[in-house]
Design a protein around this nucleic acid. Sequence first.
DNA 1: GATTTAATCAACACCGTGTCGAGTGAAGTG
DNA 2: CACTTCACTCGACACGGTGTTGATTAAATC
Lengths: 209, 209
Amino acid sequence: MAERSRRASRPSGDDRQEAILVTTEALLQSRDFDSLSIDELAKGAGISRPTFYFYFASKEAVLLALLDRVIRQVEDRVGALSREFEADPASAWRRSIAAFVEVFSEHRAVATAAMAVRSRNVEVHDLWSRSMLSWVDYTAEVIEAERARGAAPAGLHSRDLAASLNLMNERVLLAAANGEHPAVTAGAELDVLVDVWVRSIYGVIPTSH
Amino acid sequence: MAERSRRASRPSGDDRQEAILVTTEALLQSRDFDSLSIDELAKGAGISRPTFYFYFASKEAVLLALLDRVIRQVEDRVGALSREFEADPASAWRRSIAAFVEVFSEHRAVATAAMAVRSRNVEVHDLWSRSMLSWVDYTAEVIEAERARGAAPAGLHSRDLAASLNLMNERVLLAAANGEHPAVTAGAELDVLVDVWVRSIYGVIPTSH
DNA sequence: GATTTAATCAACACCGTGTCGAGTGAAGTG
DNA sequence: CACTTCACTCGACACGGTGTTGATTAAATC
């Protein structure tokens, strides 16, 4: 990690950039994003504070790069999934939600930092917003399709339902990942989310007799 | 607001404390909590920055006081509600959720700031956590009671379901209050939330034929 | 009127950010 | 092989916000 193969007296710029990213994610495992100083990130990457600014405009820009990677990872996994809902809808929803759950828990630190920072940083806010939007769009489309083929009963405006369910996932997973209270029992997140999704989308309320 | 009735050459301490709270909530209508400086809060209350510290230990302490008031307000409203679910469960849930929705939108700025700050401030985090916990407890109790009387089918661990639904409300209302994207259509929040709650708690998934 | 108590603020020490400008060495150019 | 260029580096500075100290004032109480 420290030296390149054909000894270069200085590590290359790409190495440094990567070192900053690695250091930041490592520090985020145990520390609050706000409590990190640029000096620490620089030191961790073996450079001075001014040099940090050669690679990134700010702490937030580092987080943005980390978040971008995480989001691409979810997109890759969700994109690789089959779009087959007819045979077993519950399992199909489960697979989609699982992609989300896995990446969220693998990159807990980045996700948590991003959620904390988005309220004051437009770039982080917009990046996250954009992916949420695309998941909501996808969810709403599937709900419509399920209603069209008669598998799901008519109900709420599908985009509103889709937005609520996706926002629930975001919040529930964040709470679980950080051991907040209240939170869903550790390990049960996926089961609980799938159940609420399936009941809200397909569920019928028994008529009072 | 500036002077007291029987002219006191200085407004009393209580007035000043209140002025800081009022100024802060006013500034929060249009500005990010992080972007507020203590100097602004002090100036807004007609005092100097050091004097601010006579009343509050930090910006966060001011927010904590504001949040405390908001939470009490929700508790008062929810406490005044009838606990009668037998006759019309959907309406009963709607009334509870409505209390939440109303206070959240009346004090949008405080709620938003509190959500943004909780990740780095233990006091704010704990205060919010504690109220969420009490609402989750209440929700879980009612779900159990509804199952016991046969109104709701058996299902998920009630506390996990209760936690998910309450976390959904928190996130959906925050997104709606701030005009985020994605968010639930403005004005439809209550209808959507109630629908998801009722379906998740009472809903039955039609068996495939 | 003397004393206590609440309230006030100028001045200071501190810390993190972001910038500027001078420097260094490796790689390309005539 | 001199010389220019370019990617990279950092010491030193200016700035802005925080939190504290200690002296000061004015009302309240005795």
